[in-house]
Amino acid sequence: MEYPRGAFKDRPREAGKEGPHRATRAGQAVSDGRRIMTADEVRRATVRIAHEIVEKQAGTEGLALVGIQRRGVPLARRLADAIAENEGVRLPAGALDITFYRDDLSLVAHQPVVKGTDLPFDLNGLTVVVVDDVLYTGRTIRAAMDALMDFGRPRAIRLAVLVDRGHRELPIRADHVGKNVPTSRDEIVKVLVEEIDGEDGVAIERLVAAHL
């Protein structure tokens, strides 16, 4: 007699009792990288972008900065600091978590941990400069724009990134770029910021297949 599935298979218990495990980069490991921006270069690029933003928007009126979690957030704050120093005006700065707007739910092994959105100002009618560390496929920015729209109707959205590494998958470009870096897809661009990583800098690392 043919016996339907399920009836006789071992039923291993949900392995919930052995305590937590830590997520790792699935199937991949990172080799040692090569530094492409020093701390000083990061600082100079930030200052230059701050000037560009004010120049391009002809002043600071109606401007706001929104950093994408996580490393976009300290970068946005630094831009706000630099603009305050140059122009004497403190732009509103916020943090945006795009976790719930990602389009790759089916590609990730686990849901990313939510880090939180903090937009302590009304977006309506403002020109919002979205700040992130690296621009790559453009999907993060797409998600960020969707998320922003749920908070209000900005007059315009601009984009500032520290590194543009190419390989766009969507028709998105940055208005302000710290450094254009040609990369291949099997490389990772690592941005370090002092507030999170204890130092500033940018490195390129090569992905290697994990021996697992």
């Binding site: 007699m1 016996y3 009836a7 006789f8 298979k9 071992d10």
Partner: peptide, 17 residues
């Protein structure tokens, strides 16, 4: 103990496997 190993039509045993 597997379904195929049992001559009985009743495969209802908790000892399966």
């Amino acid at each position: 103990v597997t379904p195929a190993s049992l001559r009985s039509k009743g495969k209802n045993t908790p000892l399966a496997g």
